[in-house]
């Protein structure tokens, strides 16, 4: 009986895969490959941002140094860290 129940399934014909499906897959693969440079752009942007924020930090530190320099000058102290002049 069990075989009778499923017997109609034997009548299902095998269908060849349509040719346009390969074109679609190739298109999708190209899209995926185009996504990689976008990811690279994002990574480069992130690195640039980190670099920029470090630069800002250094710049602000150097500004603090000028404050220290003027304070040292007012006290008549040499603020330079070099021991000898060329």
């Amino acid at each position: 009986m069990n075989n009778d129940t499923l017997e109609p399934l034997n009548k299902i014909k095998r269908i060849p895969a349509p040719g346009y499906l390969l074109t679609r897959i190739e298109g999708a693969l190209e899209e995926v490959q185009l996504l990689i440079p976008k990811r690279l752009i994002f990574v480069y942007a992130a690195i640039f941002f980190v670099f920029l924020s470090l630069q800002i930090g250094v710049f602000s530190n150097s500004q603090n140094n000028t404050d220290i320099e003027s304070y040292a000058n007012s006290l008549g102290i040499n603020s330079s860290i070099t021991l000898y002049h060329d």
């Binding site: 299902i12 095998r14 269908i15 060849p16 895969a17 499906l21 390969l22 679609r24 999708a28």
Partner: peptide, 23 residues
Amino acid sequence: KDLVYNVCLNYLQNKEEAEEVFQ
């Protein structure tokens, strides 16, 4: 390709859905 297409058709019983999963 034919193996995958027919499994998708037999599993989903819908041509458009089978093509989507095939991809």
